[in-house]
């Protein structure tokens, strides 16, 4: 059987040697941090606009405003890292080199997951500290405050799961443009819009992007039927399902 470390090393080379994957990952950082900084600066002087009735000012959420768009960038990264094999016909070269399809997908997932987690961790911590600095002493919060560390770590995990979910969907549909056409509108439009439609609201709560985002909040917002960690688990279950689906497609279909 193919040696897992060798295949993982080869997958790492694949990701780092193409500009589009590298840049999509860098843009996760840039978008999240820059937006967080900008909104924090705005919030500093307009605190009243950032507080809803009867709710405390959420300094963490303000510095994480950029995560909403950072999510899209990490989805793009997940799709590109896997999908570019399909657009170039390279998947046949990959499978000829590593015919153990399960090993190939596992190595891909491991490398992708590790990279996404590392990039997400750097991104959320930098975004948090820069955001707090921009908010200034009166408004900022600290990692020691209640639920803040959980929200910061949880956001990194949430981003990582979204990346792997996208990779799984891409392996299932075997086409990167198609995968982007499904995932980006889903996260940007379909899910947020449906989440405010009364009838389907209770179902949409269990969508991966919605359920996973519970952990990013310091103050519980809604009357959610699940807690922050359970929400992350729901997101993780979707991710596992997508990867499993991808595995079955990869296993069964002709390359």
């Amino acid at each position: 059987m193919a040696a897992f470390p060798a295949v993982a090393q080869s997958e790492w080379t694949k990701i780092r040697s193409v500009r589009s994957t590298v840049w999509s990952l860098v843009s996760v950082f840039l978008i999240t941090v820059a937006l967080g900084l900008a909104i924090s600066l705005v919030a500093r002087n307009n605190v009243s606009d950032f507080t809803e009735d009867g709710r405390p000012f959420d300094a963490t959420a303000v510095s994480f405003i950029g995560v909403g768009f950072g999510r899209l960038a990490i989805v793009v990264f997940g799709v590109l890292a896997v999908g570019n094999e399909y657009s170039s016909g390279m998947i046949r070269v990959s499978l000829a080199a590593v015919p153990q399809r399960g090993t190939l997908l596992a190595a891909k997932t491991a490398v992708l997951g590790a990279l996404a987690l590392a990039a997400s961790l750097v991104t959320v911590f930098v975004a948090f500290f820069i955001g707090q600095a921009a908010l200034g002493g009166g408004l900022s919060t600290t990692l020691g405050s209640e639920n803040v560390l959980r929200a910061v770590f949880g956001t990194a995990l949430y981003l990582t799961l979204l990346c792997l979910l996208s990779a799984g969907v891409t392996v299932m549909v075997r086409h990167q443009i198609l995968a982007l056409a499904i995932l980006v509108p889903f996260i940007l439009l379909v899910s947020p819009i449906l989440s405010i439609v009364p009838v389907v609201k209770n179902v949409v709560r269990y969508f991966p992007d919605q359920a996973g985002s519970a952990i990013t909040q310091v103050f519980p917002t809604d009357d959610l039927p699940y807690g922050p960690w359970a929400g992350l688990l729901i997101c993780a279950a979707w991710t596992v399902a997508a990867l499993l689906g991808g595995y079955l497609v990869l296993k069964k279909r002709d390359a």
Binding site: A2, A3, A6, V7, Q9, S10, E11, T13, K14, S17, V18, R19, S20, N84, E85, S88, G89, M90, R92, V93, S94, A96, A97, V98
Partner: peptide
């Protein structure tokens, strides 16, 4: 050699051969 251009267009010739080499030690 099955297809002539089964190479990611954005990857260099060296890197293409490098990942292949690494996958098979």
């Amino acid at each position: 050699l099955l297809e002539a251009k089964a190479v990611h267009p954005g990857r260099t010739a060296y890197d293409h051969l490098l990942w292949l080499a690494q996958s098979n030690r």
